[in-house]
Structure formats: structure tokens, C-alpha cells
Write a protein that binds this DNA or RNA. Structure first.
Lengths: 143, 143
DNA sequence: ATAATAAAAGACAAAATACTCTTTTATTAA
DNA sequence: TTAATAAAAGAGTATTTTGTCTTTTATTAT
């Protein structure tokens, strides 16, 4: 479904959102532990997301990753698009380049429906909406 | 979503179903051309599906791949499971091994819904149901 | 200024996926 | 029984994805 990179990216963004809820910054080591991800790998991923403006970072002591006020509205769909591109939301299920309404693959119509539901679900899911449930231990990001 | 291997597998099975509708067998070359897939690669994939009993084959002149009567009821979900395993239908969206109803990831509930819709769709889609539309040029398997 | 901290960057390695090429085996028809 | 046909099998290559390690750069506090 999602690439490993994308899975880590989503988990990291949700984790940062929760940890930085009150202006705190989070270091890579904390993030890596907090979401059970390889430290250097998640570092790469976050550097990429940072360049793309989905997350902020600052170097030096007391540095780390954090979200700006308006970034809590970032959706999981935004993250997926930034990391895996939008093939999941627009591509053909059977991998046909020229698949379209006019020249559809056998699965085209049925898949378009499912795909839209998935897209809508990910668009409506915002990184910050899980903060409380995570704090209360009702949802998990490890293992 | 699906691996390339799986995309080819689904397209090949649908193609074989259509071509072998009236007891004809199809060679690998025909299949490869018919679905725009690398010949030797699709051969491997079909050998695997053949071992798993999803398609029949016979060697020698007039040989090729074909479906037995009851195999036209094979669903796309069967093919996906045979090729990619059932991670798509049962695994966690965020890649968490221990994600479950009791220890859910943030996306668990929302994703379970989508995943079931996709599973149901693929379970209800049978390889043979596209035969007519393909013959009429209303659906396509190339490019 | 200096030492400590923490992200950024770059090179590298391992594993998985995707794909190719060659040889072997089975079947059929002449 | 021989030649042609077509899948099966196996070895090998290429690319992408995933992950590691080391060095550099920026920031902060002392």
C-alpha cells in the first residue's frame, strides 16, 4: 500500500505533532524510539519532509523537529503525496499507463470508487487529530 | 498498491480467461504481447500460478495456458493473495506488526473500513467477468 | 572562543523487486 | 524416431528500496 518510507513518515509526523503539541521540539533519537524506526533512516525522511515544508527543524542544543501552528492541519494524504507521489490516488490498479475513462482497464470503474474513498479518508485525517488518543494510550505508533 | 508482478498476474489471468473462453490455449508470447508484459517475466509468474493451481498449462505443440471450467470463478483477490500474500487485506496501514483491535495504530479503524471494501471488491471480481467487454474493445489490458 | 548538541549531507551496503538469458524437459505431428 | 513446438527451470543482471555509517554544518550555552 504505502512504501516503508511513507509508513515511517506518517508515524513520525503524528509523533512529532503529539510531542510538540505545546511548543516542544523532538530530536531524531526520540522520534526513532517513539515510532520504532531506524534512526538514520527516519532522519533522511524528515530532512526530505523538512525541505518540502511539511515539518520544521532547528539545529543545535534544544533543537529538533516541530510543527508550526498551521501545520497541524496537514493531512495524511499530504504526507503520502510528498513521499510516494500521487500514483496511489490517480494511477491504474493494473499498472496501465494509458488507462483512463476512455480506455479503461477491466478494474477501472470499481477501483476508482475505492480509491476515492481512500483518498477522502486520508485527506480528512489530520496529523494532530490523534494527539489526545496517543497521550491516553488508546492508540499506538510502536512496533 | 499491488506489486508489478501482481499487476501482470491479474492482467494475464484475465487475458487467458478471455482467450481461452472456448477451450483455446494461449502461448506465453501471445500473452506477453496481449498485456504488454516482458515475455520471460510473465512466464515465471504464470509458472508460479500454475504450481499454485490458479491456471493450467500444457507443453508441446498446441500447448499453452488455459483455465479449467471451475477456474473462471477465480477472483482477483485469489490472485493477489497468491502473488503478494494477504498483507494488503490484513496488515496495518502504518506497517506496525502488533497493530490490532486491542492495540490499534491511529489509522486502524478508518483503514479497516477501506480495506474491507477493497477486499470485497476484489473477492467479487472474477477473472471471467470481463471476457465480453474485452472482446468488444470496451476494456483494455495493454499499456 | 570553546565545547557540546543536534540536524544535514553524502557515501556506502544490503535486501527486495523486476527483468533477462540460456538450457532442459515434455509433447505432438510428420 | 525425428524435428518442431512450447512450457519449466535455473542462473544471472539491473534497479529500486531500505537501511547504515561517517563527516560536516549550524546553534547554543558556558
Amino acid at each position: 500500500m504505502f512504501s516503508k518510507t511513507c509508513e515511517y513518515a506518517i508515524r513520525a509526523m503524528i509523533f512529532i505533532s503529539q510531542q510538540s503539541e505545546h511548543g516542544m521540539k523532538v530530536g531524531i533519537k526520540q522520534i526513532a524510539k517513539g515510532i520504532s524506526a531506524p534512526e538514520h533512516f527516519i532522519a533522511k525522511i524528515l530532512q526530505d519532509l523538512s525541505r518540502k515544508g511539511l515539518v520544521q527543524s532547528s539545529k543545535g542544543p534544544n533543537g529538533g523537529f516541530f510543527l508550526e501552528a498551521d501545520e497541524i492541519k496537514i493531512s495524511l494524504a499530504d504526507i503520502v503525496k510528498a513521499v510516494d507521489g500521487d500514483n496511489l490516488f490517480t494511477g491504474c490498479a493494473l499498472g496501465l499507463k494509458n488507462c483512463s475513462e476512455k480506455k479503461p482497464c477491466p478494474l477501472h470503474d470499481k477501483f476508482t470508487v475505492i480509491r476515492k474513498q481512500m483518498h477522502d479518508m486520508l485527506l480528512s485525517a489530520k496529523v494532530a487529530e490523534f494527539n489526545r488518543e496517543l497521550s491516553q494510550g488508546l492508540k499506538h505508533l510502536k512496533r
